[in-house]
């Protein structure tokens, strides 16, 4: 379907253009077109849309989901599907962090303790997946376990800690007018993309994701990979939990279940972000950059709907439509590439 375009570009002799046209054309054109439509619609219909303040809001709203999506992208790219326990990991971590803060251990200790829990949770899930466990079953089981632990630990109550506390800089602080959470999102997104592109580990993620059997045959085993990517995803979850807790100076296991971020369940939102970005659900194709852009895109649409006074029902519906749309476009793009054989 992109044959004609290829013909025109071939003379340019740059394989890069070829690849760009073949792999991205339809997807990029559609996404950019859609983005522009949303953008212009927002501009025309909502007077507050085109303000610097609103842009900052959009990015800030995208930040928490975006950070988790960047982490989850590693899992997806490596061909290990999704972690369905993103939300529950965050739930246990936020309880851990808040409990530790309220006990007066300070930010550093609380942070490390929370990260430790996330690392253990991620490594355990990764090991089971790496040994051949079905990612859905393993992480669904882990989700129940982690949530149960958090719930038990906190007696299902809100854990709060008093301001001023050592985590305020992360939760509500800002630097040069940008909220620190936004800065964290940008830093994490950029470094994740650099890791994927320029490190041996990043290359292994793609290779194993593209063909696990060939990965094994060339000396890249999925077992250590599954552990590593699950740890990355869990750590991103934990970071979001800490940042959110720092923002509201409290914690509850249900903070990530509903009425959080844009709309609804955190795990669903994160998976939606990865998919809207156009990452291959089978692994081996995509990037964390796509997930980051997916997060911003969803956030923009959501922001516009909020400005227009939509309540959560239609907003969830919009996210669902975006997923369906990106899957269709993605499938078309890949088929276009295949048709050239």
């Amino acid at each position: 379907m992109t044959g004609g375009m290829i013909g025109g570009a071939r003379d340019a002799a740059t394989g890069y253009v070829d690849r760009l046209v073949r792999d991205y054309s339809a997807l990029v054109v559609c996404l950019i077109a859609l983005f522009l439509i949303v953008f212009i619609a927002g501009m025309v219909t909502a007077p507050n849309f085109l303000t610097l303040f609103n842009f900052k809001t959009i990015i800030r709203d995208a930040a928490l989901v975006g950070i988790m999506a960047v982490g989850l992208t590693f899992v997806t790219l490596s061909g290990n599907f999704f972690l369905l326990s993103m939300k529950e990991t965050a739930a246990l971590c936020i309880i851990c962090f808040a409990t530790s803060m309220s006990a007066g251990y300070g930010f550093e200790i609380s942070f490390l303790l929370t990260m430790l829990i996330a690392l253990v949770a991620g490594a355990a899930q990764g090991a089971l997946i790496g040994l051949g466990g079905n990612p859905i079953v393993v992480t669904l089981g882990a989700a129940g376990l982690l949530f149960g632990l958090g719930s038990w630990w906190s007696d299902n109550l809100v854990v709060s800690f008093r301001r001023p506390h050592g985590a305020e800089w992360l939760g509500t602080g800002s630097f040069l007018g940008l909220p620190n959470i936004t800065i964290a999102f940008i830093l994490i997104a950029v470094s994740a993309e650099l890791v994927l592109r320029y490190t041996k580990f990043g290359r292994q993620v793609y290779l194993i994701g593209a063909n696990r059997a060939a990965g094994r045959a060339t000396g890249h085993e999925n077992f250590p990979m599954a552990i590593k990517v699950c740890m990355i995803a869990s750590v991103c979850s934990a970071f979001v939990a800490i940042a959110f807790s720092a923002q509201v100076s409290s914690a509850h296991v249900n903070y990530f279940s509903s009425e959080f971020g844009s709309s609804g369940d955190m795990t669903i939102m994160v998976i939606a972000t990865v998919m809207v970005g156009g990452n291959s659900i089978m692994g081996g194709f995509g990037s964390t950059l796509r997930s980051s852009l997916g997060a911003i895109f969803i956030s923009t649409v959501d922001n516009m709907m909020v400005l227009h006074g939509f309540n959560s029902g239609p907003r969830v519906l919009a996210v669902g439509l975006m997923i369906v749309f990106s899957i269709i476009v993605f499938a078309l793009v890949r088929r276009g590439a295949r048709a050239q054989e």
Binding site: R19, Y206, A210, N211, A213, A214, G215, R216, A217
Partner: peptide, 11 residues
Amino acid sequence: DGLFLGRPIRE
């Protein structure tokens, strides 16, 4: 298990 079909030849 011989090739990563979706990845570039160089990789």
